[in-house]
């Protein structure tokens, strides 16, 4: 698993894709931070992170689109599947490489609270909780991207479907409101990654949200493993 993880992570930096993801993420987050916090002289970063969910829709598909489709394109998927590692390890290795790159972007973004520290006393704990929530929400959505990448043949199709899916989750509350059934609305709210993330922006670290994010990722990793395993017997 470590070898797959390292290979995938390295491949982000041997192609421009990792740099493009990091560069655009830092550009977008830089603009949001400068105008949401520094311009308004506000220490609270919840507005910043609320705005930053935009990168989930725009940039996460970029991270996950090639994870399995590239192997299929280069016909290296057969090699991978016959390698002496389990499918679960392959999937987890690939998933973790995308998560680590996403986390790396967040680590660079940690300079923002330290910039604010130069200009006033701030409480870092709620800010770190926001970073944690954003990371967990991002990791959950990456698991969707990994699953879609494993079920499609082309990078473009994987990116487009991931984009549509994440965008759909983002506006799921609005979609559910079209149907005036309280149960549907409750269920959609319960499943919405973005709704769960608002707890973090409200300054609450809740065990149920953390468990939700972790199990959300687990379900999609499991589905990805199954979709690859399926090829062996179908």
């Amino acid at each position: 698993m470590t070898a797959i993880f390292k290979r995938e992570l390295r491949s982000y930096f041997t192609s421009p894709i990792g740099y493009v993801f990091l560069g655009i993420t830092l550009l977008v987050s830089g603009i949001f931070f400068v105008y949401s916090n520094l311009y308004r002289t506000v220490k609270d970063m919840s507005d910043f992170f609320n705005d930053l969910t935009l990168i989930f829709v725009l940039l996460l598909p970029l991270l996950t689109m090639r994870l399995f489709t590239e192997d299929k394109k280069n016909k290296t998927d057969q090699l991978l599947l016959t390698a002496p590692v389990t499918v679960t390890k392959i999937v987890v290795g690939k998933y973790l490489s995308a998560v680590v790159l996403f986390g790396f972007a967040l680590v660079i973004m940690l300079i923002y609270p330290f910039v604010m520290l130069l200009y006033g006393k701030i409480n870092l704990l709620p800010i770190f909780a926001l970073y944690l929530g954003f990371f967990l929400a991002g990791a959950s959505l990456i698991s969707i991207g990994v699953f879609i990448s494993a079920t499609t043949e082309s990078q473009i199709i994987a990116a487009v479907i991931t984009f549509i899916t994440i965008f759909g989750i983002m506006i799921s509350g609005w979609i559910a409101s079209v149907f005036n059934y309280p149960f549907i609305r409750y269920a959609v709210d319960w499943f919405s990654v973005f709704k769960r993330f608002t707890e973090f922006t409200a300054g609450v670290l809740s065990l149920s949200s953390v468990v939700y994010f972790l199990s959300f990722s687990a379900v999609f990793i499991y589905l990805t493993v199954l979709s690859i395993e399926k090829k062996r017997w179908s």
Binding site: G23, I24, L26, G30
Partner: peptide
């Protein structure tokens, strides 16, 4: 620094 220098360096 944050809008120009950091992203451009990475790119």
């Amino acid at each position: 620094v944050l809008i120009v220098f950091v992203p451009i360096t990475v790119l």
